[in-house]
Amino acid sequence: MRGTSGFSHRIFIGAAAAALVLSGMARADAAPVADHDTAVGVGMICNTSQQAERFVALRAQGSAPDKAMAAVNDEAKDPHACGLAAIAFMRDATLDSKPVADKLVQVVRINVVAGFNGSGWQPVSGLVQYAVMEGEGETI
């Protein structure tokens, strides 16, 4: 989340980190969201689709969420390339899907409209990120 003048540092909150560690894969929202509806949630977001896809690939290979996030950030040479955030967003497009621990996980391009900085919501405009979300999928 480059170019947001410190915004990315403030939206990464302790509750988000706890959610990732406890769930193994944080969900960006609790219910299915139609494209272009605004949703609020806590979850893993990355600056690029490649970073999000790498995070999912590492998780699919058995890496713990915190280890996968650290590996992606190390590879990107950016400690904030991927991280947890509490955000309001609009879903744009699903880019990839992969099974992780018997769940379908998707990489979704999102438009962030606000972020929670620990004490309140801060509006954002024009910020595209890539979220890692549990997908709905079909049961066969």
Rank of each mutant, 00 (worst) to 15 (best):
A31M: 11
A60S: 14
R10N: 08
R109C: 01
A71D: 11
K67Q: 14
R27A: 14
M90Y: 01
G6L: 02
N117S: 12
A70H: 02
V128P: 00
T48G: 06
S5L: 08
G3Q: 07
A28H: 05
A86C: 11
N73P: 04
M44E: 06
S8G: 03
M90S: 12
V113M: 03
A30C: 13
A26F: 10
S125C: 03
I11E: 07
A131T: 09
A85W: 10
G43R: 06
A26V: 07
A93K: 15
V21P: 00
A57G: 09
A34L: 10
A16P: 01
M44S: 08
A17P: 00
P79V: 12
E75K: 11
A28E: 07
D35F: 13
A18E: 13
R59K: 10
T38H: 06
F7T: 04
A131N: 12
V105N: 01
E136F: 01
S49M: 07
D37M: 10
A85K: 11
A57F: 07
D78M: 04
G115V: 05
V56W: 00
A131C: 09
R109W: 01
C82R: 06
F89M: 11
S49H: 08
A52K: 05
S8P: 01
E53P: 00
A26C: 08
P79I: 13
S63Y: 12
T139H: 14
A70I: 00
A34K: 10
Q129P: 02
P65I: 06
I140A: 15
C46W: 04
V56P: 00
D74K: 15
I140Q: 13
P123I: 00
V108D: 11
F55C: 03
H9W: 09
F7I: 05
V108N: 05
Q61N: 14
R91K: 15
G62N: 13
M44N: 10
A18H: 11
A26T: 08
G135H: 03
K103Y: 09
F116N: 13
Q61I: 00
K67C: 01
P32Q: 04
I11P: 02
A52H: 06
